[in-house]
């Protein structure tokens, strides 16, 4: 389903969405970052930097209640059914990150805590002329219910699910040829970064990256865990109990494989006991292990870890260094 929307149509669509969903829309915030905030019926910023917070945090938050033990000894699992979320303003990479987590948490045994939040949520991608200065962002083409492609002054809207199609049905159809032109434009961008990632993955898969390289990268890591905490496909967590007045709450909390204690066992054995092993794991896991396990890399090239890392060893920077150093071995 392909529709064309004017600014007025768009506001009508958002009003309609907000009737059934807790709609969050993109806003350029006073602190210079861009975030998703509750739709107030008036204000949103279509153009801006990438979202600061990882989009998957809406379904896999930093801390999340797993189970409660009440004082009478009964264990109960939180079953909150709040108004389903609708997230507007997700770029292609954000949507890919959510799709990755959807698959990861849905694989049996499914993670009900994630799925409880994710089921029924509406994802609205925002692509096209939605970059900081209206630059063209690549089209998503999937992984969302509705994709809004900004063209200024109109939007092309594509539905990829039944709820999305239902919401768009009242709007006029768009010109399919115009949509094809958008795809042609989209295909022209971001190829170089993807090629670099693919080359680095190939070098890692063929074990052509030496340990001395990882030593150098590990020496620059300050173990802040920032790369993990901003990554939309990082799903590792720790579990902790907290006692309160009504009983005990067991929650999960984001964890980082870059911290020394991440894999340490009670017996003292630590399979990730050196900075080299931990640094190698971070990259290897996304580019070698994830493709083996899930059929695609765990890095969606959103750039968050590169922006967050204080010492410049985010995913893309490391891939760039791998290709510079070892590329000729391919």
């Amino acid at each position: 389903m392909l529709k064309t929307l004017t600014a007025q149509d768009l506001f009508r669509l958002l009003d309609r969405v907000s009737r059934d969903y807790n709609l969050l829309v993109p806003r350029n915030l006073d602190d210079g970052t861009r975030g998703l905030v509750k739709w107030d019926g008036q204000q949103l910023d279509f153009c801006g930097d990438p979202l600061q917070r990882k989009p998957t945090s809406h379904f896999f938050p930093q801390t999340d209640l797993l189970v409660q033990l009440l004082k009478d000894g009964t264990a109960s699992v939180p079953r909150k059914t709040p108004e389903p979320l609708a997230l507007l303003g997700l770029c292609r990479e954000d949507l890919q990150g959510i799709a990755f987590c959807d698959r990861f948490f849905s694989v049996p045994p499914a993670d009900d805590i994630y799925l409880d939040k994710r089921r029924g949520a509406l994802l609205i991608g925002l692509t096209g002329q939605a970059g900081p200065e209206g630059e063209f962002l690549p089209l998503a083409g999937q992984d969302c219910d509705i994709e809004l492609i900004a063209e200024k002054p109109t939007w092309t809207a594509v539905a990829y699910s039944e709820p999305g199609a239902h919401l768009l049905e009242e709007f006029p159809d768009a010109d399919p040829q115009g949509f094809e032109r958008l795809w042609e434009r989209s295909a022209e961008i971001t190829v170089a970064r993807q090629e670099k990632l693919a080359q680095a993955a190939q070098l890692l898969q063929r074990e052509l990256v030496t340990d001395d390289f990882w030593e150098e990268i590990a020496a620059r890591c300050i173990r802040c865990g920032g790369c993990n905490f901003v990554c939309p496909t990082c799903t590792c967590f720790c579990v902790q109990d907290r006692q309160g007045s009504h009983g005990t709450e067991r929650s999960r909390i984001w964890d980082s494989c870059q911290l020394d204690a991440f894999m340490r066992e009670a017996g003292g054995h630590n399979p990730l006991g050196t900075a080299l092993l931990r640094t190698r794991r971070r990259i290897h896991h996304k580019l070698v292990d994830d493709p083996q396990r899930w059929g695609e890399p765990g890095c969606v090239l959103c750039g968050r870890c590169d922006r967050a890392c204080p010492t410049g060893i985010g995913m893309y920077s490391v891939c760039d260094a791998i290709v510079s150093r070892f590329g000729e071995r391919l």
Binding site: A110, D111, I113, L115
Partner: peptide, 8 residues
């Protein structure tokens, strides 16, 4: 996204 029994 069928819900199975709760894993936790």
């Amino acid at each position: 996204m069928a819900l199975h029994h709760c894993s936790y």
